[in-house]
Nucleic acid binder design. Sequence first.
DNA 1: TTTT
DNA 2: TTTT
Lengths: 155, 155, 155, 155
Amino acid sequence: MAGVNKVILVGNLGKDPEVRHLESGSVVANVTLATTEAYKDRNGNRVENTEWHDLEMWDGQAKVAEQYLRKGSQIFVEGKIKSDTWQDEQGNNRKKMRIRVLSFTMLGSRTGAENGGAPQGNPNTMNQGSPAPQTSASMPSSGVDMDNVEDDLPF
Amino acid sequence: MAGVNKVILVGNLGKDPEVRHLESGSVVANVTLATTEAYKDRNGNRVENTEWHDLEMWDGQAKVAEQYLRKGSQIFVEGKIKSDTWQDEQGNNRKKMRIRVLSFTMLGSRTGAENGGAPQGNPNTMNQGSPAPQTSASMPSSGVDMDNVEDDLPF
Amino acid sequence: MAGVNKVILVGNLGKDPEVRHLESGSVVANVTLATTEAYKDRNGNRVENTEWHDLEMWDGQAKVAEQYLRKGSQIFVEGKIKSDTWQDEQGNNRKKMRIRVLSFTMLGSRTGAENGGAPQGNPNTMNQGSPAPQTSASMPSSGVDMDNVEDDLPF
Amino acid sequence: MAGVNKVILVGNLGKDPEVRHLESGSVVANVTLATTEAYKDRNGNRVENTEWHDLEMWDGQAKVAEQYLRKGSQIFVEGKIKSDTWQDEQGNNRKKMRIRVLSFTMLGSRTGAENGGAPQGNPNTMNQGSPAPQTSASMPSSGVDMDNVEDDLPF
DNA sequence: TTTT
DNA sequence: TTTT
C-alpha cells in the first residue's frame, strides 16, 4: 500500500493551548493555528486568506506546548492528517479533521529583549475586530531544550 | 504574517475521479485518496490504518485526472488544506476540509490499462536518447506532458 | 518521468546575501543557511549539529533577499536540489550541490532592524481590519508584498 | 535555534544498492536516485532534466534496501541533507553532500504479474545510450512488511 | 472506497 | 558563517 500522509505548516497560534491531563497519565494539547497566504486579486489588490488548523499534540509535546506556546506564537509544524468520524444526533455521518503533530519547532524567538523592551507597535490597534492571532511579548526565550519537539505514538 | 500550508500525500484513489465541467468553463475533479500506514501494535500484530482524503483539482489538472486517473491509481500529491465553512439546516456551524491539489504525479507504471482505462500511446517513441529515467512501457500519456501536473489558482 | 525533488529548510543566514546583477538583467542572490539540530548523546549531553546550505535565488526573490535578508535572518525555504558538475584543473569530475530556492518566507519578527538592515515601514497602516495573523510591529516590508516570495524559472 | 532540514524525493534507482556490512555490525546502503523533471523550453519543446542524488541508508533500512530495491525501483524518500567535509590531497577544502534517508517507501509494485509476465515494452530499446535507470521486472511484490521503512540514528 |  |  505504501502511503505518505504529511502536513507542513508555519503559522501563529490563535489562542493559548488548551491542555488536558488525562486520567491515564497522557497529556493532550489542542492548538489552533492560522496560516495566512497573500495574493493579488485581478485588480492588483492584496488579498489575505487565512486557514485555521486544529492541531493535536500529545504527552511530551503537549507539555512543551503548555509551558512555552501562547496565543500568537509562531511555530513550524510537521504532522499528519487524522480524522475522526462519528454519527451526530440526527444519525448523520460526521467527520472532523485534525492535524496530529509529529514535531514542532518554535520560530522567531529573540522577541524584543534586545531593543530594551520597547513595545513593537501597538498590538491593540492592529487587526481591529480580527479573529487573528498576534505576536505578543510572551514568546519564550527559554534556554530550555525544546527547540524541536517530537513524539511517537504508534498511530 | 508569513504562512506555510503544505500537504504531501502518496496513496491510491478510492474510485474514479468525479469530474464536473462548469458553465464558467472551469473543470473540477473530486478525488478520494487513501493513505495507509501500517504499524505493529503492542502484541506485535500488524495493524493498518487508512485515512481518506478529499482532493480537489482544477482545470488542467482536472482534465488530466479525468483522462488518466482511475480507481486504484497511485499518485503523489502536493497541495494545501482548504476548508469550507457554512451553516447547516439546524444553524450549526459546519466545516469541511479538502486538499486543494497544487500538483500531482502519477506513480508506478501501468496506470489502469488493465481496467479499460487510459490509452497507453506508444512509449517507444518517447524520450528517445534521453538521459531521463522511465518507467517501463506503460507510462500513460505518451507524448502528452502530464507527468507532473501543476495548477495556479490565486487561492 | 514523474520525479519529485523537494527541499524544506528553516534556518538562519550565515551572512548577508551576496547579490550579483547580471548583464542579462537577471539578478542572483547567494545565501548560506544554517540548519541546526540538537540531540542528546548517549551520555545525555546536548549536542548540536549544524548543516550549512548554499542557496541560490533569482530575480524577484533575489531582490527581496537583497533588500530584506541579513546575516542572522531566519527563513523558511522551499526549493530543490540542483547540482553543477565540471572538471577541475586535474581533470577530476567535480560536483557542487546547491538549493535552488522556489519560495521563501521570512520568519519571526524584527528581521534585522537592529543591525541597520531593512527599513521597517509603518506597520500601523498594514492590513487594517484584516483577518490575517500578523507578527507584531516589525514585519519587514510593510506595504510591500514579499511575505512569501516565489519564482518560476523553467529549471 | 530551531532548524528544519528536510528532503522529499520521488525517483528511480540508478543501480542496485551498494551495501556494506561494517565490523561494528552496522549496515550501510548507498543508493543513487534520479529525479527527473520535464518542462517546455521557449520553443515549446519538451525538455527533461535529471538530478542524481546520493542516498545513504543505515541498518534496518539498509537491509530492506539490499533485499528489495533494485536498479529502476521507484521510491519515495524522506531524509535530510548531510555533508561531509575534508581536505583533499592538494589541501583544498572539499565537501560532499548526501541525503541521509530517514524513511522510504516503495512505489508502484504490482509490476506486471497480472498481465501474464509479458514484458512491458522493450527496455533495451528505451533510453538508448542513457545513464538512466529503467523500471524492469525486478520490483518486489513481497508480502513482507517493509512498506515504510524508518530509521532513527541520533544524527 | 484504495492498496499490500 | 547563523541561531539558542
